[in-house]
Simulated assay, not measured.
Amino acid sequence: MNMDEASEEVAVELAAQGVIGKRVDQMESGFIMALDYMIQLAEKDQDDKRKTLLEVIKETVLSHLTKKCPPHVQVIGLLCRTPKKESRQELLRRVAGGGGVFKSENGTKVHIPGANLNDIANQADDLLETMETRPVVPDRKLLARLVLIREEARNMMGGGILDERNDRGLNTLPEAEVNFLTKLVALKPGNTVQKMIKNVMQGKDEGADNSDSAEGHYTGGRVSSGIAGRKSVTGRKPLPVRPGMFLETVSKVLGGIYAGNDSGITAQHLEWVHQKTLQILQEIAF
């Protein structure tokens, strides 16, 4: 981007700040969706200038909306705009310590609210559930970011996989994720398994959105009791494998193994799958 383009972007942001700041309370819920649609059209038309300006407006709107949210929601907004894992972890530490005003990497002052790590993890999980139970995932990047935030916040709470605060009511394991995980653990850890995970996290193969969803073939929720190679016991078609639910399933299975003092090769394999999945989601997210 040359200097003129950079100046234009700043000018648009300043103008957007002024207009949006006055009218953010009057915005309809579909405004962000409309912006997303316009950004997609600009991308399809290969109009980089229009796309950039629309993205500036979207970021400004989201920034204003975030400031009106509870502290833990504000933190999620900040984390979604923090690409480096180490920076997110530092931000979470400061949030858990009560927040405050800190200097960012580019030297600007950033106000970080204090918030509860459990609230952050649960809020991210709620947002994930909303996105993942849809027939089509609207934003894979945002989805990946939310998964990372949930997992990193949970990890920082210190209770590990068996921490009861991480038990969010998943009493039965979802069919699609169980089937996919069964396929993975049947293979030796390596490039083949990593490629399978990456494809699914990107919305391909077992993770692909199905066009049948438009005809109402999906359940609109999770179907459990799946066993690899068998049809659904309910006769209903489950949702595809979703990143957040997949990691939740891996954690549940690992928790069961550790609770039974039966750790070994399978546990090591599952931990490898968990780690590689997070690495892949980091690549997708940013």
Rank of each mutant, 00 (worst) to 15 (best):
E132F: 07
G114W: 01
R140Q: 12
R23S: 13
K84D: 15
N166R: 15
H64F: 09
K22V: 14
I149R: 01
I197V: 12
K276D: 05
S29W: 08
R93F: 07
T266C: 04
V137K: 10
D48M: 09
R81D: 14
G21I: 03
D47L: 12
G220F: 00
D262A: 15
A259T: 00
P70Y: 02
S213H: 08
D126R: 15
R150P: 00
I284L: 02
E90C: 04
L91F: 01
P240I: 01
K49M: 14
P70K: 05
E177N: 08
L62A: 07
R94H: 14
Q40K: 10
I32S: 08
Q275G: 06
K22M: 13
V61Q: 00
E86Y: 05
P238F: 08
T234C: 06
L62G: 03
F180A: 04
M33H: 12
D125M: 08
D205I: 03
M27F: 15
T82M: 09
P70N: 10
I227C: 12
V273F: 00
L162Y: 03
P240M: 05
G159W: 03
G244Q: 00
A267Y: 04
D36Q: 09
G30F: 11
D4F: 13
N106P: 04
L143W: 05
E164Y: 12
K44Y: 07
A267C: 00
H269C: 05
E13S: 11
I257S: 07
D209Q: 07
A259W: 03
I57S: 03
R94P: 06
L128E: 10
N171C: 01
I265W: 11
S211K: 13
G99T: 01
L62T: 06
F246K: 04
N179A: 14
K68M: 14
M38D: 14
R242I: 03
R154S: 10
Y258M: 14
L187A: 03
Y258H: 13
Y218T: 08
R145G: 10
V137F: 02
L270A: 07
R154V: 00
Q194R: 12
R93N: 13
C69R: 13
I280W: 02
L187R: 11
V193E: 02
Q279V: 09
K85F: 03
G99E: 04
Q279F: 09
E248L: 13
I76C: 06
T249K: 04
G229P: 12
L142P: 06
I265F: 12
L78Q: 10
I57Q: 02
I32P: 06
T234K: 03
M201P: 03
G158H: 07
N155F: 07
R23G: 11
K252N: 13
V253P: 05
T108H: 15
M201E: 08
V137D: 06
P174H: 01
R236M: 15
L92C: 05
R154H: 11
L128C: 09
L162G: 05
E28V: 08
M27R: 06
A115K: 00
A259I: 07
R50T: 10
L53W: 08
G18C: 00
S63L: 08
K68T: 07
N191L: 13
V73W: 06
K109N: 10
Y37K: 14
R236F: 15
E283V: 02
T234M: 04
L53I: 10
A153G: 03
G220N: 00
E13T: 06
